[in-house]
Design a protein around this nucleic acid. Sequence first.
RNA 1: GCCUUGGUGGUGGAAUUGGUAGACACGCAGGACUUAAAAUCCUGUCUUCAGCAACGGAGGUGCGGGUUCGAUUCCCGCCUGAGGCACCA
Length: 1023
Amino acid sequence: MEYNFSELEQKWQGQWKESKAYKVSNASDKPKYYVLDMFPYPSGAGLHVGHPLGYIASDIFSRYKRLKGFNVLHPMGYDAFGLPAEQYAIEHGVHPAVSTEQNIANFRKQLDKIGFCYDWEREVLTCNPKYYKWTQWIFLQLFNSYLNPLTQKATPITELVKAFQTEGSTQIDGLRATVKPFSAEEWKAFTEKEQQDVLMEFRLAFCGYGEVNWCEALGTVLANDEVVNGVSERGGHPVEKKRLRQWYLRITDYADRLLNDLQKLEWSDAMKEMQTNWIGKSTGAEIDFAIKVSSELSVVSNGHSQLTSHNSPLKVYTTRPDTIFGVDFMVVSPEHELVAGITSAAQQKEVEKYITYVKSRSERERQAEKKITGAFTGAYAINPFDGREIPIWLSEYVLAGYGTGAIMAVPCGDERDFKFANHFNIPITNIIGDAFNGTEPNATKDAKLTNSGFLNGVVLRDAIQIVVDKLEEMGIGKRKINYRMRDAAFSRQRYWGEPFPIVWKNGIAYPLPEKNLPLVLPEMDEIKPGKNGDGPLSNNKDWITDVDKYFEGVPSSIYPPLGDGGLESSTMPGYAGSSWYFLRYMDNNNDTEFASRQATDYWNQVDLYIGGTEHAVGHLLYSRLWTKVLYDLGHLGFDEPFKKLLNQGMITGVSEFIKELRIDKDIIEQYNNCEKQVCLVIDKKEINLNVPYGEGHNHIYISLDVNFPIQLKVLSNKDLIEVKSDVSEHRADIRFVNQSPEKSVLNVEDWLSAQPVYSDSLLICKDGYWQNGKYHDFDGNILSQKLEFKTNPTIEKMSKSKLNVHNPDDLVTKFGADTFRMYEMFLGPIEQSKPWDTKGIEGVHRFLKKLWRLFFDDIKGKVWNEAEPNADELKILHRTIKKIEDDTERFSFNTAVSAFMVCVNDLADIKCHKRAILEPILVLLTPYAPHIAEELWHSLGNDTFIIDASFPLFESKYVVESSKEYPVSINGKVRTNLNLPLDMEQADVEAAVASNETVQKWLEGKAPKKIIFVKGRMINVVI
RNA sequence: GCCUUGGUGGUGGAAUUGGUAGACACGCAGGACUUAAAAUCCUGUCUUCAGCAACGGAGGUGCGGGUUCGAUUCCCGCCUGAGGCACCA
């Protein structure tokens, strides 16, 4: 009888399903335990080997907890809204709902093959109207709430309205800077629009304006992912910033709670630190500087700029008010609202040019770039203490969204300010005496101030308070706590997401009545961007404008007739559905609530949440926010969603990059539609190749090993001119690449036929080129043999979008689910990222076969027996119980797999086939390899599922030792071993060591300086 | 650039609290069984020096320093891979 894994795995998967072995009840005498995986986005590429890594870990832990007597909730679902499905729809004309459904079916088939213990009756799908009804409902909770500054809790906005009606804005501590104070009378006199505008400044879900990546050529907003090197990944079109109306979640109001409550969580320090840094709390001061602008007339008349004062002050945020005398220039973000009003005539052109440049830059580039850029506005700020005129500059490294969008630059104390000053020849004031050497800035707080007026001689650290006090006294500054975190953009100009239950009329947002939720996403035949950056839904005029039906029966005193209003046309982002899905699993069929309070009280927090670190600051922060809001509003009994977090490391794959020659992005618009030629310079000989005309695409690819120069020429006004070009890299799907350790070679024909738009490509190899379906040498002769087009292998996380995925199906078919599960765990520590490689899976498979042979022999059949176990066998068993239990508890699954191997090797060595030993081992193994454990369990005559067995109890009496083989080191280097009783004390040990032959050899007759003895560990002799 | 994290044999990794570096596997080499293969089993396998061998010497956890009787583990500096950086999920 041999180990027929495919037959037995199918058999048990069928029986588990049929008898609902993994169905979980919301009522149980057992203690509860909630194990959750980060649910997957169902991509068209299917499950890849990185997905199950975490799922296997959670499955092991769920089964382990169940064996330990817990009622374990372990559900699974899909994060089914998202950009890729929409992109696929645009490219292939398949509706996202259809492709998503197919993808989910495919995922499910793949997941089922691995033998997970999910309770599939609790499955959730974020794109299901029954689910997103409640996503929309929670959105309305956010929309209809504000953070009460006194209680620091989300509170219905009606409370705020009441307060405004009776007291005006006076009682509202921390009134937003954007709202002017008003009295109760003034509030009552406000128009509805004015009132609603004020309330919008408080709502936790609110509408504002934000910048997006706008691609004019594609007529759409692009995700950061879709922008590469400043141009659209598809087509290489220019991308610039565009200001659009957007929804936001006011997460900044929760910054302090999100920060403080981290201490309640059993998350890794790294994860907490990432969130802490993301929230980025800092204490400092806001300081108003008076501005003087140049008067243009004076400039013309006498050539010197004369300054006149400007109405608004320049408000800066700084954490170092102590350095105020060292301010040598101001840096304002190019988007700052003051810029237009303070720029001098002389600087006008330069400033405009700079702003245009910055518009084309992504936020990442602006912060990452090492090159220093900026423009002088011609205006000056006035230092309030000594009246010094400080030039005001623009630079991209100051972002509009952080602080006040303006900083005071102190070059002697700040790296970036210092470089900026040097680059633009701005004189540097030294306010820290010897602590500044003139060649590198020093951010110390412990030096004594110099050149600092009334602060001279004061230590910087102490000067902070003095300066802020003084500024507050003068009424031009105040203490301020700032957060780096910004409010979370919550709208997308896309189709495949949750529609907002909001109707707009006359600039006022009216929420849909709850009873009319869900607002269902309408079917659309064609998905394409709307006008002016609106989402695709805006093309569906009927849906947008047919709004009265949602308000039937609602008194007109609450809503005016909305007949000519329109539904919000953007949709919610991917993280909307994933911010609360863990709650829905608890009660996933509830039609009257997102989940019953009874269910959420019972299951409470997720006890163990497993997922990748890539969600550190996105999903994990938003889920925390939503949980807190629901808690504040009384819908939940807990305010943190995930008690313990285990970060599975990513499985990395090898992506393959292809070099593409493109026109430089700065001139792409000018020449994109011209005919092009590439000129290869090989051994001083020029070879010119025509490039097919292609709008937006150049389609010129260069093999990795090409090392001769290549120029790009365009035909402009009948002249062939050389233009600036850029080599960008983009990925080829690894399915089309022959990967070997030595080199990666593109399968050109397959690659091109998979993407017909690229069929006109020119591929340049080392010894020739591919064009029009043929390889040529550089003389243009058609070659019969293939040339090698090499790609650039690069290690990255495995992901569909990186085109480097490996599918688990083949391995499961070849070796079985149990082998696959144990192999993924055996790869290494769950928390570390590791490369995917299948060589090694044989070893795990051999282990399972070896285990099988402890029960059955291929020829003899049954070999297990009922004999009484001896001491050695019991020792092996109990050592294994201890090790597996410890390792599982600390999520050290790789060492647990090793421990199983050691155990089976040991039992095989002593030919132990005793049921009394083998049966408990099967229970230990159940979480890791449930199928083989189940099969052998039944072979031993059991007729219940092994998952309903109890975890074996460790008994230390079987493993106690009376002596130990101590390692004996001389000066820290092990020289010999010494077997000593475990209860032997220092004095006796020293005597035993001193008389040891090897030790004496090393002592050479001298006495040891010291003998270090750590009981049960080691002995070290110091000579 | 900023935040986080990793770097140990040919490969994946082990060493749980500062205490025998390389467990367990893969691969490789040699052998047993077999007509042969598969499967299985046995032996060896960090580098290097010396040696017929038993055994032994030296070095060794990315690099350079430090603390310690003792460092893969703690501290300082550097190099380098990965993840995230707000519209991929």
